[in-house]
Design a protein around this nucleic acid. Structure first.
Lengths: 204, 204
DNA sequence: GGTAAGTAGCTTAGCGCTAAGCTACTTACC
DNA sequence: GGTAAGTAGCTTAGCGCTAAGCTACTTACC
């Protein structure tokens, strides 16, 4: 059982409070967050930056810092959940991609590696593991002698149908905490942020 | 120059559209997202799940799927930016933690590894690299003969002060695309989601 | 039909991380 | 002062990934 998880990514760090006057930093953070909500770990970080570099606008950090952090925390939690089914996050993604493609739950390794943005080397490893566990089968492609087809077994179908439900239940808890209206509103704002992120990426 | 990046995490996959009728899937997605906004990659995935497993509520996926995706996309972009300064994301985090702790920019390896949620082994590697690059120094702790202190060099201070500005500029582009009010609203909703996530994690 | 270019999947080397275990201390307790 | 427990930082083995290069084809073109 791991005691440490993935590394935090840029601006995702917390608890550097050890090194400063906690109360003072929290005051700075509360001023920075500009709401009645209690300051969180990201407010603490933006507060430190505001003190050290008052020339910087830290709003982007307040948004993306929380996105990095939520991604890591929830990702770790999902990973732990999938272990109940004997699979990791990477294996889950392969099974899920096959499952939601619909019957007969068959794709080529190339389609899978393109979808999951994985190199063929990485894909080979995941398929080896899943085939050994009896969750999928590799068969020759009848129409292309170079090609393979990867198909979910009955066992694999059963595992993914259970696992996707468990994973959704885990994510539903905090989302329901927002209430249905705010959860929808958050999804809408995130969709717009994704579109804006894609747009700014193309420019660069 | 890598052509493939980090693996996508659960429900973060896109482009499995290869395997289905694109127009049909998009219709499903548009119905699912419930707004006038054009369907995006995550709408396509929730649309596939709605078709295959109509019993599932996919709203949590619509929220966390975008969080995973944004984290990966922006994280990769930041990584590429930091390479201009000769450092990776991990090294950036170490320098940033020292920088925002304030003068004299000194912490122990233990404080750093706790803050960055890294094992001591991982920390040793990052410190080795940064020390070799002349961006920080390791000196004995005068008060504890077991301990070390890690301090930013002038060169390290210069690098991190530049890099943090570049990174913020990169993140500011999409955030500004939302407009100031919606960007603030997004930060507020994300703070609430983080609090709800922490709360549901404690219960489990 | 022959040749060049493209593609599928696999193998290998290297990288950065975790987990586990090590030494060299310090701290708490008697 | 002596001993037990705790802590700091380092080293090693193992894991999953990427990048690069391989073989075995298929496709396009003459």
């Amino acid at each position: 059982m791991p005691q440490q998880k993935q590394p935090l990514t840029a601006m995702d760090a917390t608890d550097a409070m050890d090194t400063t006057d906690q109360a003072d930093a929290m005051d700075t953070a509360d001023r920075a967050n500009g709401t009645d909500a209690p300051a969180d770990a990201v407010d603490a970080i933006t507060g430190q930056w505001n003190r050290e570099r008052p020339d910087l606008d830290t709003l982007p950090m307040a948004v993306f810092g929380r996105i990095y952090r939520l991604s890591r925390i929830m990702g770790d939690r999902m990973e732990k959940e999938y272990q109940r089914y004997g699979i990791g996050r990477g294996e889950f993604d392969v099974l899920a991609t096959l499952r939601r493609s619909g019957a007969p739950y068959t794709l080529s390794p190339r389609q899978l590696s393109a979808t999951l943005m994985l190199t063929t080397g990485g894909m080979t490893g995941r398929l080896d593991k899943l085939e050994k566990a009896g969750l999928l089968e590799r068969t020759p492609d009848p129409g292309d002698r170079r090609g393979l087809r990867v198909t979910l077994t009955d066992k694999g179908l059963g595992v993914i149908d259970q696992a996707v439900g468990s994973g959704l239940a885990l994510q539903r808890e905090p989302v329901d905490g927002l209430g249905p209206q705010d959860a929808e509103q958050l999804a809408v704002l995130l969709r717009r942020l994704m579109a804006a992120t894609d747009a700014s990426g193309r420019g660069a």
